[in-house]
Amino acid sequence: DESNKPILLPNESQSFERSVQLLDQIPSYDTHKIAVLYVGEGQSNSELAILSNEHGSYRYTEFLTGLGRLIELKDCQPDKVYLGGLDVCGEDGQFTYCWHDDIMQAVFHIATLMPTKDVDKHRCDKKRHLGNDFVSIVYNDSGEDFKLGTIKGQFNFVHVIVTPLDYECNLVSLQCRKDMEGLVDTSVAKIVSDRNLPFVARQMALHANMASQVHHSRSNPTDIYPSKWIARLRHIKRLRQRICEEAAYSNPSLPLVHPPSHSKAPAQTPAEPTPGYEVGQRKRLISSVEDFTE
């Protein structure tokens, strides 16, 4: 099969070098950035008060330690540790928490760990991170309901609301924008112990962030949302095809390698009803078989 044979790379090609550099910018793992907010007593309706908090309760602090690993920003190499735009020179604080497994990295933009500057009256330095995160974990210690939209931002799609209760338990629920209701189930609340709260809140936030990324990708319907490693695979396959075309153009005697095509017509299947918005969006999480067989 010609399409699977190794090909020689061009010795000097600026377009090839640019493509390789672009490939280096696509990590081999999925990345997520999640905002974390603490809401104190009497702050449920005040964005400024929430963003001005420099610490929270003892249970909130224990919750943070379970979310991930504490890292010092100045020691991080952005090409190895995903920071979601946090500055490593102290502009966004000294520490944050991050978490990773074999296929993804997540960083938490924690408002109480970011510096509260006197010259920044409206807390814009914090909002440029927190307001651009799709998902926020809100530790609501106010005793009042927290409403979506209290923290203004164009991309605040989903809130994971943590409400501490007695007996070391917590109520965990989801809020989302109306255009996200087909992807996020907000109907079920959970009672979770303090011990298990970081794991549950983190998983709910990661799932909500993946759904938000799919939702946000609708602005470019021709580019369905893939995982990062599938995006790398697609980029490599496009690069291979372009090299083959350039080689055939410079030397017409060489065969032009095309991806294999299936001449056999697909079997006719009964027509199915058109899937609704929710089903269609969830299918976009699934990769096409052509990603692996071309």
Score class of each variant (00 low, 15 high):
96 T>R: 06
240 R>P: 14
188 V>S: 12
91 E>N: 12
239 L>I: 10
27 P>V: 05
106 A>D: 02
85 G>E: 10
127 K>Y: 08
213 Q>L: 07
202 R>Q: 03
27 P>M: 03
183 L>D: 05
192 V>I: 13
191 I>N: 03
81 V>Y: 15
195 R>A: 11
15 S>H: 10
242 R>G: 10
182 G>I: 09
219 S>W: 08
12 E>M: 09
128 R>A: 09
145 D>W: 02
133 D>A: 11
11 N>T: 12
94 Q>K: 11
40 G>D: 04
116 T>L: 11
256 L>V: 11
48 L>Q: 13
19 S>A: 15
32 H>D: 01
136 S>Q: 04
256 L>F: 11
258 H>M: 10
77 Q>S: 11
134 F>I: 01
74 K>F: 04
34 I>D: 00
281 Q>Y: 08
259 P>G: 14
234 R>L: 06
239 L>E: 13
50 I>P: 02
69 R>Y: 14
248 A>M: 12
153 G>L: 08
141 D>Y: 00
186 T>E: 06
157 F>W: 15
249 Y>W: 10
59 R>P: 00
222 T>F: 05
258 H>A: 14
86 L>G: 15
104 M>R: 02
58 Y>D: 03
49 A>D: 06
205 A>Q: 00
27 P>D: 14
95 F>R: 04
121 K>Q: 14
8 L>S: 14
187 S>N: 10
56 G>R: 02
84 G>T: 06
79 D>M: 03
56 G>F: 01
92 D>E: 12
277 Y>A: 13
83 L>D: 15
97 Y>C: 07
125 D>Y: 13
172 V>C: 03
128 R>Y: 09
220 N>S: 07
192 V>T: 02
15 S>I: 11
32 H>F: 07
265 A>N: 09
205 A>F: 00
124 C>L: 15
95 F>C: 05
163 T>D: 05
98 C>N: 10
263 S>W: 10
249 Y>R: 11
19 S>P: 05
192 V>K: 00
101 D>H: 02
83 L>W: 13
262 H>L: 09
19 S>E: 15
257 V>A: 13
132 N>K: 14
224 I>D: 10
159 H>D: 15
45 N>V: 03
145 D>K: 05
285 L>S: 12
53 N>E: 02
40 G>H: 01
143 G>Q: 05
272 E>C: 08
112 T>C: 01
41 E>L: 08
131 G>A: 14
66 G>N: 04
183 L>E: 06
1 D>S: 11
62 E>D: 08
41 E>C: 05
147 K>T: 10
142 S>Y: 00
244 C>F: 11
51 L>E: 03
10 P>A: 14
285 L>R: 10
210 M>D: 01
84 G>A: 12
255 P>F: 06
70 L>Y: 04
124 C>A: 14
123 R>W: 13
286 I>S: 15
273 P>F: 10
37 L>W: 07
16 F>Q: 07
168 E>N: 08
185 D>P: 07
170 N>W: 00
88 V>S: 08
33 K>W: 04
146 F>C: 03
177 R>K: 10
146 F>R: 01
100 H>T: 15
212 S>W: 03
242 R>H: 14
10 P>H: 11
153 G>F: 07
193 S>I: 01
282 R>A: 12
273 P>D: 13
151 I>A: 02
200 V>E: 02
126 K>W: 04
4 N>W: 10
142 S>P: 00
112 T>Q: 02
88 V>K: 12
85 G>F: 03
44 S>V: 11
145 D>H: 06
68 G>D: 02
226 P>Y: 03
14 Q>T: 10
24 D>I: 01
138 V>Q: 00
189 A>C: 13
48 L>I: 12
149 G>Y: 03
275 P>F: 10
99 W>Y: 11
121 K>I: 09
152 K>A: 13
271 A>R: 09
8 L>H: 09
111 A>L: 03
17 E>S: 08
20 V>E: 08
11 N>V: 11
280 G>R: 08
78 P>N: 12
190 K>G: 14
99 W>A: 04
16 F>A: 08
275 P>W: 07
265 A>H: 11
247 A>M: 14
267 A>Y: 10
170 N>I: 00
85 G>S: 11
219 S>M: 10
157 F>E: 06
223 D>M: 07
288 S>C: 07
28 S>Q: 09
162 V>K: 00
115 P>H: 07
83 L>C: 11
30 D>V: 05
167 Y>R: 03
169 C>I: 05
15 S>F: 08
283 K>V: 08
199 F>C: 03
179 D>Y: 04
225 Y>V: 13
170 N>F: 02
136 S>H: 06
14 Q>H: 10
256 L>E: 15
25 Q>P: 05
95 F>Y: 10
184 V>T: 04
199 F>Y: 02
144 E>T: 09
240 R>E: 15
41 E>K: 05
171 L>I: 08
153 G>A: 10
91 E>A: 12
105 Q>F: 09
121 K>G: 15
178 K>W: 11
140 N>S: 00
169 C>E: 09
198 P>E: 00
273 P>C: 09
94 Q>Y: 15
242 R>N: 15
69 R>G: 11
289 V>D: 13
58 Y>W: 15
263 S>F: 08
181 E>Q: 07
274 T>C: 13
6 P>E: 11
141 D>A: 02
283 K>A: 14
18 R>W: 07
73 L>R: 14
285 L>V: 14
132 N>V: 04
241 Q>P: 11
40 G>C: 02
232 R>I: 03
29 Y>F: 09
125 D>N: 15
220 N>Q: 06
73 L>C: 10
199 F>Q: 03
160 V>Y: 00
224 I>F: 12
115 P>D: 04
266 P>M: 11
134 F>E: 01
58 Y>I: 08
216 H>R: 05
126 K>V: 06
260 P>G: 15
284 R>H: 14
265 A>W: 08
248 A>K: 09
53 N>T: 02
36 V>N: 00
101 D>Q: 02
132 N>I: 02
191 I>Q: 04
47 E>C: 01
124 C>T: 12
15 S>V: 14
73 L>F: 07
29 Y>S: 06
113 L>F: 14
205 A>W: 01
139 Y>P: 00
80 K>R: 08
84 G>R: 12
258 H>Q: 14
61 T>C: 06
119 V>Q: 10
247 A>T: 14
121 K>D: 14
288 S>L: 09
256 L>K: 15
247 A>H: 13
56 G>Y: 02
132 N>M: 12
88 V>F: 14
146 F>W: 13
100 H>S: 14
147 K>G: 05
29 Y>N: 06
266 P>E: 12
43 Q>E: 02
57 S>Q: 01
144 E>G: 04
229 W>I: 04
203 Q>L: 11
10 P>N: 15
88 V>Q: 10
108 F>W: 02
34 I>G: 01
166 D>F: 01
108 F>S: 01
229 W>G: 09
9 L>R: 09
247 A>W: 08
107 V>F: 14
39 V>D: 00
181 E>I: 06
173 S>G: 08
3 S>Y: 05
264 K>N: 13
5 K>F: 15
76 C>Q: 11
273 P>N: 10
111 A>W: 03
106 A>F: 07
160 V>L: 04
104 M>I: 13
40 G>V: 00
198 P>M: 01
73 L>Y: 13
31 T>M: 08
